[in-house]
């Protein structure tokens, strides 16, 4: 009984917590995820057979791309920096400008984009339906004789769902299983005190609202923003707030990849969005705090 009350009490605390830990398990179809993984890594799903999903969401680069912008088929350059797909399932929308609501819809973005993979649905279907390996797997999992592009997207999305990183240091701290160092603690207070938390909150520490890049001090390089979708003047320089989870792994930063280091990103944010010039020690403290968000993939 005591235990139950304790758990309820904890939950209450979390609910009021601005940052909540990632659940240790979410329900996924393991077979689908496995199939999705094959597709995710398959470069034959691109027009020049050289670009796979994994080409721009590299596991050893935080499932993102350390290049400022990624290189698509036939060496074409992308427009914005490739975001991490870790914990993408917790984002309220996908892409920098949040133009789709689900992971599955997101899959078609890179697939169709001419400077990324440049494959139409027909191309995708033509490829997978000719491939006996995929035919067999899809038959087994989707009970179908004809694989649709939709199924391909569904499988990839299922794989992406499995890419969550619970039990980062801060999550453990929230659960009372770890202690923060004084520097990290200071970073945490500054994170709140300067209002970073206004936008970077929730389970994904971001990824749950739109915000303006250059809220206080206008930002010049606003490419691929929400304005391109809504054509509302107010949406100029508006992007989905990116997650801060695993942020130490996913340099360079911002939509344009303009900040090469985390420190640079922190002080830029302070300047453009908080209208303050952070001191070096403050930046260091915040950086130390942000590093506690780095977790490990669920095995």
């Amino acid at each position: 009984m005591k235990r139950i009350i304790f758990i309820i009490f904890l939950k209450y605390l979390y609910a009021f917590n601005l940052i909540t830990p990632i659940p240790e398990h979410i329900k996924i179809d393991k077979q689908k995820a496995k199939l999705g993984k094959y597709l995710f890594m398959d470069s034959r799903l691109s027009a020049d057979k050289k670009v796979a999903c994994i080409s721009c969401h590299k596991p050893n680069e935080g499932w993102a791309d350390k290049r400022r912008v990624s290189i698509g088929v036939f060496g074409k350059k992308g427009r914005v920096n490739s975001p991490t797909i870790l914990n993408a399932v917790f984002n309220f929308r996908q892409f920098w400008n949040g133009r789709v609501k689900s992971l599955k819809e997101q899959v078609f973005g890179p697939l169709h984009t001419t400077f990324e993979m440049n494959m139409s649905k027909k191309d995708v279907e033509k490829f997978v339906n000719k491939n006996s390996f995929y035919k067999k797997l899809f038959k087994k999992i989707y009970h179908t004789n004809y694989i649709t592009a939709d199924m391909v997207a569904d499988a990839i999305a299922e794989f992406e769902k499995s890419l969550i990183t619970p039990n980062c240091k801060y999550d453990l701290y929230l659960k009372g299983k770890a202690k923060l160092t004084p520097l990290e603690m200071r970073g945490k207070i500054l994170f709140k005190k300067y209002g970073c938390i206004t936008c970077h909150n929730g389970v994904n520490i971001g990824g749950n609202s739109f915000e303006k890049m250059g809220l206080i001090i206008p930002y010049k390089n606003c490419i691929d923003d929400r304005y391109e979708i809504t054509h509302n003047v107010l949406d100029k320089c508006v992007y989905k707030v990116p997650t801060l989870r695993n942020i130490s792994l996913t340099a360079p930063y911002f939509h344009d990849g303009s900040a090469k280091t985390l420190k640079e990103a922190i002080s830029n944010m302070g300047y453009y969005n908080l209208g303050i010039r952070l001191k070096l020690d403050e930046v260091k403290a915040i950086e130390a705090f942000l590093k506690t968000f780095t977790g490990e993939l669920n095995k």
């Binding site: 209002g195 206004t198 609202s209 915000e211 303006k212 809220l215 206080i216 809504t230 949406d235 908080l274």
Partner: peptide
């Protein structure tokens, strides 16, 4: 919903300014 997104942006700016002013 669009208003909400816009409101959130404005609200953030005002909040951040309040924090700024306070400090």
């Amino acid at each position: 919903i669009n208003y909400i997104y816009q409101f959130q942006i404005l609200n953030s700016s005002i909040k951040n300014s309040i924090i700024f002013f306070n400090k």
